[in-house]
Amino acid sequence: MPAYGTLAAATFRQYSTYRVATAAGVFTNSVFGLIRVSILLAALDASGQEIGGYTALQAATYVWLGQALLAPIEAFGTRTIGERVRTGEIAVDLLRPAPLLAVHLAQKVGRAGFLLLGRGLPPLLVGVLVTGLALPESPWSYPLGILSVALAILVSFLADAIVNLSAFWLVEMRGFQTLYMVVMNLLSGFLIPITWFPSWLESLARITPFPSMVQTPIDALSGRITPAEALVGIGLQILWAGILALVAQAMVRAGTRSLEVQGG
């Protein structure tokens, strides 16, 4: 439907006007990238061998791709939908002739599109200059990696939407949001690759949707896993996107049924 394209394009344009915020974000992402790279390299140096199947260059690449994905997947969470529920602005969304989640997803697509270019590419450039990046052996890793990044953005959006939709039942959702952020940052493999976890924690992470948000796209794009393995990861991402979409949609339905729109 062209409405979603229009909305996504307008949101892309909107974000492209936030130049100072973008520059500040790029700077922060890059500095934290340097810190994280130093820590991982020190760990690898101390162990004197590969950890969890990562060479030094792959570990550095892991960090830079993670820093690049940070903004597009909005790893620190969003508050828009939850705030709209809390203030009753959600009533306006419900009066639009388009499904609530689709409208917000279209905005997310526009936003993520800009954040991939504006906040995603610069940290990679810093990585190339500072440590170099490990490039995949198979050319298939590129299209699969890009597809996996797109799916990671979708899965993150849906999980974040579910957290936000809890506002239908929780008046105060900040605690829940912080908890989600901590768990997501850890189990997605954003802080360190999940293959570095103790095996019980890695097994736990693998039965959650979180690795689909960070670990899978980074591994697929960097070529640390083969294209065949990447395909499995992409299949899992699609599965999670489907499950989360059903949950989010059920929450919208249940929430609007119980909705008592706040305020006049």
């Binding site: 439907m1 409405a3 229009t6 307008a10 002739p97 388009a98």
Partner: peptide, 11 residues
């Protein structure tokens, strides 16, 4: 932009 989006939402 709001009008453009609403217009296409209303087809």
């Amino acid at each position: 932009d709001s009008f453009a989006i609403l217009g296409s939402m209303h087809r």
